[in-house]
């Protein structure tokens, strides 16, 4: 039990649409252990992004409990949630979300700035992370001077920068061609081998198969799936 780093019980999420309530998540139970590589698989509109926002502490559930790294996230205020996002979560977005006016190094340094790391250590760490994703020759390139795959690798380096508890990726290959998508997946694989815990959200079974464990989400319910299910 000691290596369970994420534990959700009875998580629900409802949105008010005019007069009626729309239930998007209907009591999700999920445990993730240190070092796992989990894919959350589901069709469009099934509530994947909603779940990811809750896991990433960007959103709060309507009900249920969420323990992350031994902390009850539901009891934290806005400033504390910021610091949880900064230190525990490494976000990887479908559309990379790099700052266009900053170079690769500066983009990777951003979470380190918010955690208050000193300039010297920051530069070193950012360099290290960009080397880890194979971009040691593109440190000072700006996003528009990089290919999509390279941009996503910068984003991954940024997600890794603060040594987060969980790498949280929403459709990380959604904007990439198949070949580049494969390269990113193999990077995910290596990172997982290094001991990083990864939760990846996707609607693509082919991508989900790269994970060691697949959970399926359908109409707001979560079920353990098997990689063979099509």
């Amino acid at each position: 039990m000691s290596n369970v780093i994420l534990s959700m019980r009875g998580i629900t999420k409802q949105y008010r649409m005019g007069d009626e309530m729309q239930t998007v998540l209907r009591g999700i139970d999920l445990d993730v252990e240190q070092g796992e590589f989990v894919a959350v698989l589901g069709p469009s509109g099934s509530g994947k992004s909603t779940l990811m926002n809750i896991i990433g502490c960007l959103d709060t559930p309507t009900s249920g409990s969420y323990i992350l790294h031994g902390r009850d996230v539901g009891s934290l205020d806005e400033e504390e949630l910021s610091s949880v996002r900064n230190k525990e979560i490494g976000f990887i977005f479908q559309s990379f979300q790099l700052l266009q006016r900053q170079n690769a190094m500066q983009n990777v340094e951003l979470p380190l700035v918010y955690s208050g790391m000193h300039t010297h250590d920051r530069t070193q760490r950012a360099k290290q992370m960009l080397e880890r994703v194979g971009l040691s020759d593109k440190l000072y390139h700006y996003p528009n001077q990089l290919s999509g795959g390279q941009q996503q690798r910068v984003a991954i380096a940024r997600a890794l920068a603060n040594h987060p508890t969980i790498l949280l990726a929403d459709e990380p290959t959604g904007a990439l061609d198949q070949q580049t998508g494969k390269q990113v997946m193999s990077l995910f694989h290596d990172l997982n081998e290094d001991g990083n815990t990864i939760i990846m959200i996707t609607h693509d079974i082919g991508i989900a198969r790269h994970a060691k464990r697949i959970v399926r989400i359908l109409d707001g319910n979560l079920t353990e799936g098997v990689a063979e299910d099509a």
């Binding site: 960007l58 400033e79 610091s83 996002r85 900064n86 979470p111």
Partner: peptide
């Protein structure tokens, strides 16, 4: 920036 941990 907020997702990456910038406090309000």
């Amino acid at each position: 920036r907020k997702a990456l941990g910038a406090k309000p």
